[in-house]
Design a protein around this nucleic acid. Sequence first.
RNA 1: GGGGCGGUAGCUCAGCCGGUCAGAGCAUCGGACUCAUAAUCCGUGGGUCGUGGGUUCAAGUCCCACCCGCCCUACCA
Length: 467
Amino acid sequence: MYITTTIPYVNARPHLGHALELVQADALARHHRRRGEPVRFQTGTDDNSLKNVLAAEAEGVPVRELVDRNAAAFEGLRGPLDLSFDSFIRTSSHPGHRAGVERIWRAVEHDLYQRHYEGLYCVGCEQFYAAGPCPEGHQEPLQRVSEENWFFRLSRYQDVLSELIRDGGLRIEPAARRNEVLAFVEAGLADISVSRSAARARGWGIPVPGDPAQVVYVWWDALANYITALDGGDYERWWVAEPRKVHLMGKGVIRFHAVYWPAMLLSAGLPLPTEIFVHDYLTVAGQKISKSSGGAVDPVALVDSYGVDAVRWWLLREVPRVGDADFTEERLIARADEDLANGLGNLVNRVVTMVCRFLDGHVPGPAEDLAGVPGAVHDALEEYDFRRAAAAVWTIVEEANRYVERTRPWQQDRAGQEASLGTLVHACRTLAVQLEPFLPTAAARVDAAVRGTRLARPKPLYPRVAG
RNA sequence: GGGGCGGUAGCUCAGCCGGUCAGAGCAUCGGACUCAUAAUCCGUGGGUCGUGGGUUCAAGUCCCACCCGCCCUACCA
């Protein structure tokens, strides 16, 4: 499975919304790897946005400096968030990217033509709108832009796209998003402008082949990353031979991924992605996350305060598949204390302690099994329902705690203790395995506590945060 | 303006094709237990399932209208 996240433009540091998409993609990637499937998980940054140029100007630093600094912050999420991406592409520096964009441009040249265009442009969205204000809430007023641009005959692909989405060749989840895209496509597709004047872009970006006065529309440039990041044989392996190619993204950019991008590929005669999963947005204490106006929450700061498991767990266990989710530190803490400290941590602690006290640390063999959980997790993830999948994993914690109360090892004879503790240790080991895609650090801690045939006295896995 | 989604216990939410669907978790309260991180387990309370109609033997569950929130799309005089 080839899994990608969108590549954010780097006019600012990453916020919790970026972390959501990365952690979802990571859980998916880890889950499929664990099943023994070949996986390539890719993310990166969109360095070529005009927005980056403007941010640099506002800060009074060279564009290259600002872009490098912020891109490093995005790539630096890997450690703090336990991300397992296989490649990180930066559109301004990846060796094959520029050549790839040019190659695609030439491949679709039969669908390109020049036209004068005039419209209202939102720099924040890198998109034209019929009227203001910008629906994404970017502050700056829309610019009236008038220039001679290259246009792509999107209109030609309306029927093919519609059919592709209808017959599932391009699966869009959740279904509401699929219907939304269909409605848009079937309402009629107009040709789109795919270049910008180089002057207006301050010379930043990739020049149009054969027309240095224009740069390639940044979205065209950015979308291409999904294949330009695949060097050499990787392209054949992951874009041609791979049966499942999944793009994860926020609801604001569906159109680019579900309409423009497939149309580009169709025009170029290249294979298409097979699945698109759209997540909604995070709000913070009821406020929209905005990089400029302070609603942003730094995921690394959260990890520093509460640990990676608390942050990942909130993102995966609390965010619904459909609908915006509201983040507050209180909710994160409540989840961490209730689930990680009281649930998981305490379970492992009590089980290992009993093994030490009653059985001198010797681990008995497993008695019962927890069938059903892996299947439930897999089914939920096939629908990109991370919350349901996380809940399915957690049934092990709940069942195990109930099992302790039911069998009361402290009241049993040696044989009874071996039977019930054997089951419990086995449950903890299963838990470690099932938890790995969601909370790799937690999984490692659990595994360390219950591995081997002789267990040591445990230390609490998670202290309570709130006390 | 058109279209879509959501509005279910104090909070976060499950409830697919109509008939144990009035639920779970958290919070509250009561009880149990002592292996464990004042943790765990069991139970109680609490809701006119947005509003008003309609279809049906039977409707959160279908239909219509309206109110509120969000999303997509378009902006006719």
